[in-house]
């Protein structure tokens, strides 16, 4: 990775437990600037816990989490976050533009109004995900893929240096998934990207580094994904499906 050894996210021997259940044990890894980093692993394996630690929503029981060399709370203003859509009320009466404007909450004036600049920012973010035409539509009327794009636009409206996505391709079809990853690949030129997914085979075409989490954590460059590694993490032999277009992975960094 050319001149990009600046650490963005650093975990140093981090452990976390929910109600006495250890979900993350002694995890250490670093995500560098410009990386396209994926966390994979089974459900309940600690992926989302790691995201929440990076976002400062929960605190590590032991070890340290540093983001942009500081505490997660202080680094928040530089992070764009896209949650799983399932966490939101599908009937909420709100327009697409108002959802994207929430990315500008951090710069909201004391009086609580969005500035002209905030609106421009929101529109640019909608342009990036090709959803400007839907600006005045109700968020509840969008399809799965469309609302994922809008939530991505909201994260981009932050103008982040680090983009974090939680299962960005859940509930969307393969075509939408492809488009989304192509878009993320373009965005990766200007920001560090970190995502959580359970879809290991697919993501390996795009990401540069993968960490497998199942309570413990194993980091690998993408080209190393192998049957042994998968079974080490998932605990059983799983079929690995080779997709087409795996060629050209060699010139990716790792």
């Amino acid at each position: 990775m050319d001149g990009s050894q600046t650490p963005v996210v650093e975990f140093d021997r981090v452990s976390f437990a929910y109600d006495g259940n250890l979900v993350l044990e002694d995890a250490s890894f670093t995500v560098h600037e410009g990386d396209f980093f994926s966390l994979v692993g089974p459900n309940g394996g600690g992926k989302t816990t790691m995201l929440r630690l990076i976002l400062g929503l929960i605190k590590a029981r032991s070890g340290t989490v540093r983001v942009f060399g500081t505490s997660p709370e202080r680094a928040r203003s530089r992070i764009g976050y896209m949650p799983q859509k399932t966490a939101l009320d599908p009937l909420f009466p709100v327009s697409v533009k108002d959802v994207v404007l929430m990315g500008r909450l951090g710069s909201l004036s004391a009086m609580g109004f969005y500035s002209r600049e905030d609106r421009v920012c929101a529109e640019q973010a909608l342009d990036m995900v090709e959803m400007r035409d839907f600006m005045h539509r109700p968020f509840s009327s969008l399809s799965g893929g469309q609302s994922q794009r809008v939530l991505l636009a909201r994260a981009l409206a932050v103008k982040p240096d680090l983009l974090i996505l939680d299962e960005p391709t859940s509930n969307v079809d393969v075509v939408v998934e492809n488009e989304l990853y192509e878009l993320l690949k373009r965005l990766n030129d200007s920001m560090t990207i970190m995502l959580v997914t359970h879809d290991l085979g697919f993501v390996s075409r795009y990401v540069k580094n993968v960490a497998c989490v199942n309570r413990r954590l194993v980091t690998h460059p993408t080209c190393d994904i192998s049957g042994e590694m998968i079974s080490a993490v998932y605990g059983s032999d799983m079929h690995m499906i080779r997709h087409d277009a795996v060629t050209g992975r060699g010139d990716r960094h790792g």
Binding site: R76, A87, V94, M102, F113, R154
Partner: peptide, 22 residues
């Protein structure tokens, strides 16, 4: 009405609002 934008954000997605420093 004064806190409309902030309350809207909290009602729609509390976690995101928190991350944005609200």
């Amino acid at each position: 009405l004064l806190f409309y934008n902030k309350l809207l954000a909290v009602c729609f997605d509390e976690e995101f609002a928190r991350i944005r420093g609200l």
